[in-house]
Amino acid sequence: MSLPKGLAEEVARNLVMVARLLDEDAEQAYAYARIALRLASRVAAVREAAGFASYATGKYAEALAEFRAARRMTGSVELWPVMADCERGMGRPERALAMAGEPEVHKLDKAGQVEMRLVAAGARRDMDQAEAAVVTLQSPELASNSVQPWTARLRYAYADALLASGRETEAREWFAKALEADQGGQTNASDRLAELDGIEFTDALDEDGADSGDSHGEQADDADKAGDKGSAKDADKDAGKDSDQS
């Protein structure tokens, strides 16, 4: 509302594109965010959008600067957890932990406090303090049987911390609980359960290609090459998803 109509519409169009592309094409979302930032750097919503676009592309120092600017403009504490996570991304988990103990945390809503707890546990993991991460995640929200938007991710993080601490039986129990609460596919809890149970998934197409190799050697070679490429892509996706959950 503080911008001239034509400029406001141009900025709005770019912000809409940031929102649409952030989860699908972070680099493209970042490009739109930079345009909006160039046009209206004194608008808090623009600084916030630029922060999330930078965060999604791993530009943590840039993201932190934008989030700080947005916070100065609005006075809101809602960005506090993601700001702390930027500190983790920059290799400064101790600063993230310090932020977890600041008074701003008490001003967050329930979702924000859970997010802050997840960030603090992640910082503990960064510092090879798996048992401390387990303790950090123990909370009334974790113990509650009520499923909230954050429940699956909280249970997953707890299971992962238990596993890192060598408590495999408990970890399996909590991965199962995470899967039970995960209605939107936020985690890969099902894959982690399968891994713990020693279940391996085989591509039926690869098996067919191998069976026909005796009579069609050249076609089997082509199929094997295609299968190898597919597996590599799947592995990249799995690795990325695991990284997101941490």
Score class of each variant (00 low, 15 high):
Ser2Gln: 07
Ser2His: 07
Pro4Cys: 13
Pro4Phe: 05
Lys5Gly: 10
Ala8Cys: 11
Glu9Gly: 07
Ala12Gly: 09
Leu15Arg: 00
Met17Gln: 13
Leu21His: 03
Leu22Tyr: 01
Asp23Trp: 04
Glu24Gln: 10
Gln28Asn: 07
Gln28Tyr: 02
Ala29Asn: 04
Ala29Glu: 08
Ile35His: 09
Ile35Arg: 08
Arg38Cys: 13
Ser41Ile: 05
Glu48Trp: 03
Ala49Asn: 08
Ala53Ser: 12
Ala56Gln: 02
Tyr60Ser: 00
Ala63Ile: 03
Ala63Val: 03
Ala70Tyr: 00
Arg72Asn: 11
Arg72Glu: 10
Met73Gln: 01
Ser76Gln: 06
Leu79Glu: 01
Trp80Lys: 02
Pro81Tyr: 01
Asp85Gln: 02
Cys86Lys: 00
Glu87Gly: 00
Arg88Trp: 02
Met90Gln: 01
Glu94Asp: 08
Ala96Cys: 05
Leu97Ala: 07
Met99Lys: 00
Ala100Asn: 05
Glu102Phe: 08
Val105Tyr: 12
Lys107Asp: 15
Asp109Cys: 07
Lys110Thr: 15
Ala111Lys: 06
Arg117Asp: 13
Arg117Gly: 10
Val119His: 06
Ala123Ile: 02
Arg125Pro: 14
Asp126Thr: 01
Asp126Lys: 03
Met127Ile: 06
Asp128Tyr: 05
Asp128Thr: 12
Gln129Asp: 15
Glu131Leu: 14
Ala132Thr: 04
Ala132Pro: 09
Val135Asp: 14
Val135Lys: 11
Ser139Met: 13
Ser144Asp: 15
Val147Pro: 08
Gln148Arg: 13
Thr151Tyr: 05
Thr151Arg: 08
Arg155Ser: 11
Tyr156Ala: 15
Ala159Thr: 10
Asp160Glu: 12
Ala161Gly: 08
Ala171Ser: 13
Lys177Phe: 05
Gln183Arg: 10
Thr187Phe: 05
Asn188Val: 14
Arg192Leu: 14
Ala194Gln: 10
Asp197Ala: 15
Ile199Ala: 15
Ile199Met: 09
Glu200Phe: 03
Glu200Gly: 02
Phe201Arg: 07
Phe201Ile: 11
Asp203Trp: 03
Leu205Ala: 14
Asp206Gln: 10
Glu207Lys: 10
Ala210Gly: 04
Ala210Leu: 09
Gly213Trp: 05
Gly217Pro: 15
Gly217Cys: 06
Glu218Cys: 02
Glu218Asp: 06
Ala220Cys: 13
Asp222Met: 11
Lys225Cys: 11
Gly230Leu: 15
Gly230Asp: 11
Ser231Asp: 08
Lys233Ala: 11
Asp234Asn: 05
Ala239Glu: 15
Asp244Gln: 13
Gln245Asp: 15
